[in-house]
Design a protein around this nucleic acid. Structure first.
Lengths: 342, 342
DNA sequence: TGTTAGCACTCAACGAGTGCGAGTGCTAAT
DNA sequence: ATTAGCACTCGCACTCGTTGAGTGCTAACA
């Protein structure tokens, strides 16, 4: 497809552009990357590469800039598979060691760390409980008017809601209600609960018990709330260091994208095959980030894909380093989280 | 202190500057606000006002800009107490009606709404449990190795942690432990628990029970975590509309302030007398926002101050409207939250 | 035939020079 | 005490020539 020399030149151009963010000219290539040919030759090759669509010129007589096609080729064919540098690896381990150990914070800290290391925005999606099952409900006393409904799932996630006690209900009544609900719904997934409720219209379970309906509502609430996976975000300040964001309007559109949780979910690719995905520019669905790239990795706990880690930045990003970093996360983040579970 | 006409002129200058964000000249004042005097007179008065330190000139032959002292005087003496406009009031009610009803989200939505209405950053601090008391601890079963420790406070806040079951411990043991802990610690504030633990070195309570120490750790964790009040944030995009943030570096410093939760707590004033506080420019402790102002209000539930709402923006902000809005929040937000409790 | 040196050409970026306009301070007249 | 008039100050926008990095093309060369 591309002869060896063209490949080398393209690689040099992209590497240089990633480093400097400035259009790169033939002279620069000849000087910095000694390919054994003069600038004139490189000019000719560059003209070819431009015709083929791998690089672009902003205007006549400016250096060349990689096109999206160019980046795509770079990522697919020119990038030697690399692993995280010694430096990065050290940073990684140190980061986690220094921090406290709350499960919830691991996601946030991971996002923060990645954004610090890459100077780009980082997204970390927390495990979703799609598959998890309702285990039991228990009422705990609070005061005369209210009880706490605690909902436990089989994966160990716990949530609670405060509920009013209907007039005249005794402690015994509450125990009876929770037992009855647990008997019927325990072990069911949220989908199953929904179906079950629709089938036997909910107030048939125990007729005329307001408490039951609101208890079930609570269960549904908690479980659906958890089903939407939460996306943690880091590095909005970091991104400002990138020269492509020295423009306030770009910052504004980017920030408004990041403010909407739904848009964040659009950025993280659904179908999530297990591994690394790189989406360059227009390949992104979300049109507001058409001049950005996303590198995304899944991570697993006990072999099952439970979440994603991603880096979002200008198309001109350090693909090599970022891919290596996310590959590392892909294999290690799950284990790390597992450790935090206890 | 200031004769009537000077006051009027100062007011006109500040109003105009708040509106336009451009230095305002004598001619403008004379034309737009007919004070019955010509521009030359106004020039003389402005020269006086400048000498007194209420207004400043960026360079000779530019219009005047209010100084911090000017804003201070404006807020203290020139601002007629006003209530929220019909428009704003409508927006307020509509906003809350349209949204769903989760307690946690009320803070976030409030911040978002205020920032939308004012085009400034908004901070809402959630109720802190400083004064609250530990009520009881209960273990709920999870699986063979683990239990869920649920901690309940007297204000109805519930949190939980997953704990490993020590080898050989039976369900009965757990019940005994929780009972023992509850007997000793129930009704105590976190400070009291800390003291109590120091006094009777913790493993004396029930000697040699690892479970007890980690249960108490859990209680401490949960209660200290809640003691730091969480601050919700809204309007990072909104602030970019302000002309003073058309500069990337300013955005950067501002965003990095907002990223650190500790800095947010610095912005919200501690001593929090019950009412509205306006801090202008240098009056702010946090040096990174020395060219910003903060308007802050407390809000109460059942008469007790539980949190704060604030607006953060350039010193050139619509003090009148914002103060009115926060006064409204001061009186109504508590009630609103109370409604969501159920 | 591929490579290179040389040359003319292009175009953004920079800086100096200019005119304009909004604004001021001062002074003298009202 | 107020104001009209005038000279003066600057920032801002605009123009225009210069510079420099870069290109494409052509002819010479190995």
């Amino acid at each position: 497809m591309l002869d060896e020399r063209k490949k080398k030149i393209l690689q040099a151009i992209i590497n240089d552009y990633i480093l400097t963010a400035e259009p790169v000219g033939s002279r620069t290539i000849a000087r910095k990357y000694n390919l054994g040919v003069g600038p004139a030759t490189i000019r000719n090759e560059m003209a070819d590469l431009e015709l083929l669509g791998f690089i672009e010129q902003l205007h006549t007589s400016s250096g060349r800039v990689p096109s999206e096609k160019g980046y795509r080729f770079y990522v697919d064919s020119l990038l030697a598979p690399m692993s995280v540098s010694e430096e990065d690896r050290e940073m990684l381990t140190r980061w986690y060691q220094a921090k406290s150990l709350k499960m919830e914070e691991v996601f946030q800290e991971t996002a923060r760390m990645i954004s610090h290391m890459t100077h780009n925005i980082s997204l970390v999606s927390a495990p979703q409980l799609t598959g998890c099952k309702f285990k039991y409900l228990q009422f705990l006393p609070l005061d005369e008017q209210r009880v706490i409904a605690v909902i436990v799932t089989d994966t160990g996630y716990v949530d609670n809601k405060i509920m009013m006690i209907p007039e005249g209900a005794t402690e015994e009544d509450l125990r009876r209600i929770s037992e009855s609900i647990n008997r019927r719904l325990s072990g069911m997934s949220i989908g199953a609960i929904k179906r079950s409720i629709v089938e036997q219209a909910r107030d048939e379970i125990i007729p005329n018990e307001k408490m039951v309906t609101s208890a079930i509502d609570t269960i549904m609430d908690v479980m659906t709330a958890r089903q939407k996976e939460k996306v943690y975000l880091g590095g909005t300040t970091q991104m400002l260091q990138q020269p492509e964001f020295r423009n306030v309007d770009k910052i504004q559109t980017m920030l408004s994208v990041l403010e909407e949780e739904s848009r964040l979910n659009d950025i993280l690719q659904e179908g999530a095959e297990d591994g690394i995905i790189v989406k360059i520019g227009q390949e992104n669905k979300c049109s507001d980030i058409h001049n950005c790239s996303v590198v995304q990795a899944t991570y697993r706990i006990d072999g099952e894909v439970v979440g994603k880690v991603a880096v979002l930045g200008p198309t001109r990003m350090e693909y090599g380093r970022i891919i290596a970093l996310l590959k590392f996360m892909h294999t290690h983040l799950g284990n790390l989280l597992k450790g935090y579970r206890g």
